[in-house]
Design a protein around this nucleic acid. Structure first.
Lengths: 204, 204, 204, 204
DNA sequence: GATGAATGAGGATTCATTCAT
DNA sequence: CATGAATGAATCCTCATTCAT
């Protein structure tokens, strides 16, 4: 990579970071291109060198959040089921909290309407989450961690519901309801008891 | 009430209904005053006779949804705790579904950021929900339906989380994940087991 | 019509007149909404009360020119064929000159590409002109002014070609080549000789 | 010519050809530098190595069309007047058709306003055409092909008018009105009769 | 010669809101 | 009460052009 390309990447990242910062500070509705470029220290037109439309930077911010969670997930293959599920919960919360509550709000606002998702998105976030969790549980059956009669669909939906419920409540409560703290509690009183009956002998 | 006052009330209601219909059809972001008044069959200026600001009609729509739920709740004082809680769940879902998925999306979008709530709102939706549910449970202790050591906060937050999780997932899945169906399931595998240990002998 | 509606019409006309004046002065490429409204003495937004898009006012200006020519034509039913055809030539030139050379330029620029015509235009200008002239000649055969073997298509196309050729040359020559003067000359040395052989005895 | 100079010339020609292709496909208004260079397979900056301004390439395209016509004309000195004039007509049409109807549209749009012609253009297209045709006719008088009382101005303007009329109508009709076909017809019923009276005995 | 990142002036469009009638 | 013409701030986006590498 040449020096020029490196600088270009820096500019792009600078715009991305600035946008994240500004959304976190004032929310999406107050975000405008003049704002971003002004704060990032470049010209208005420079924005359009990297993002064809205003929405594209927002999509990218959310996708970034999305990818970070995925990346965390990939690292977790050796642990046992309970730990993997807990890690799944935690990953969401850690990454979302890193970006901040306002980005989370915009993320939910975006993810809430799959009809308005960008066309290059091959799948709904909902479908993606359902598939990923179902895979974890299906594999657990294959690995003999879960019994064959485990109600996978029920567990999958319950867990995802819990997760998005936590995020929605975090935003609603303006941060009072802290997800990190509740992840733990919920996991103990909701997820673990629910799984108990389906864990095979050797994993209990 | 004079004839004139009656007509005025009708115009007002017409505007409200039209706005609901339009949001359900095209979402909030495509809603504008010309749209509302045009569809309702009155002049742009008429809107401002009844609603000082655009936001006021949105607030009123959400408040309407809110009030319907409350009203349903008030009718339910004679039933036992489990039934009351189930009814609480159901009320949300029934009323939200009546308005439609797009209104629900906008409701979540609005409720998600308490800082941007209208100023005449005396309380956060979050705080309201927490208080209402806590009251139900506290009364249940007083009525000797629940044991004194019941972890009220834990139960309260868990239930609210589940509820908003369901609504968020309904929206995310574009209606595929049907709340009515899952309300029942969730109640059985999540809420009931959680309460079991704290119900007093006479209520079990 | 109420006083208000009258004023509104005046505002609309003022915008139209201003736009015509500005195009005539500086051409279409230098025309912008700020310009029009500023000169017309109203706010930028007022423009959009009357014209949904910038292009709509341009279309209307050209349509206006078009209609004036049509209206002139309608008045001419009692005269003989030669006079009617001459009047056809003259109508074009008189109306186009009234608007000015720059408007004529934009008109040609617009009329030159039927694919980019507004969708509410039911017909091509080309088709319209061909039809109108063919009607005049066909009727002349019916009225026994022209012989039955008159080559209508040939005459029609020749005359239209001459007409648009004159307008194009007027613009190209920046007004040096004056259409009024040439209309007469052309008619005498081109149209009349061409018709001579086909006029019936009683009309010669 | 060094290899480097050769390559440079190729790049320049590639840009020119690409621009012609793009105008023919989408018209001038959709033409932009990124478009040209992207399609030509070089960088945006490269454009400015060869053309100081965007307009310069458009000017060059039109000049190219212009020169091809001129070159055709130069070859025609030995034929008689009627043939030379017919060849003049034909040259226009053949070359303009080679470039395509959209280029012709843009050419007319450009040629229509001499005030906006590039400054390096020493003369108006109008003036150029008038001069060229007048020369042909004046020489015909000198060569004793035409009588001395031939109304040169009248003939010159009539012919040019006919020519541009044909091109304008070709564009207006979206290609339906085919210039090649009509060139012949017009020449026979318009130009030849008009000249008849002024041809000297030995040329009749 | 070639590149492509950066620029910023310029222009269209939206829409909540006001107010005279 | 009802109207709807007028407002103008706000904002997105385009694109020819420059210039350091």
């Amino acid at each position: 990579m040449t020096k020029r390309q490196e600088n270009a990447l820096k500019t792009r990242q600078k715009l991305l970071d600035t946008a994240i910062k500004l959304i976190e500070e004032n929310g999406l509705s107050d975000l405008n291109i003049e704002n971003i470029t002004g704060t990032a220290g470049c010209a208005k037109g420079t924005f359009y060198v990297y993002f064809p439309h205003k929405d594209d930077i927002i999509f990218e911010i959310c996708r970034g959040l999305f990818e970070r969670i995925e990346k965390r997930m990939e690292k977790m293959t050796d642990k046992n089921l309970i730990d993997r599920l807990y890690y799944y919960f935690e990953s969401f919360i850690v990454e979302v909290e890193r970006y901040g509550i306002n980005i989370c709000r915009e993320w939910i606002r975006g993810v809430i309407d799959p009809n308005k998702a960008p066309k290059n998105m091959d799948n709904t976030k909902w479908q993606f989450d359902v598939d990923m969790l179902r895979d974890i549980l299906t594999n657990a059956i294959k690995n003999n961690e879960l019994k064959k009669n485990t109600p996978i669909d029920l567990l999958t939906h319950t867990i995802i519901c819990e997760l998005y419920g936590m995020m929605t409540c975090w935003c609603m409560s303006d941060g009072t309801f802290e997800p990190k703290e509740w992840t733990n509690k919920f996991f103990k009183i909701q997820v673990q008891p629910m799984l108990k009956d389906y864990l095979t002998e050797n994993k209990k």
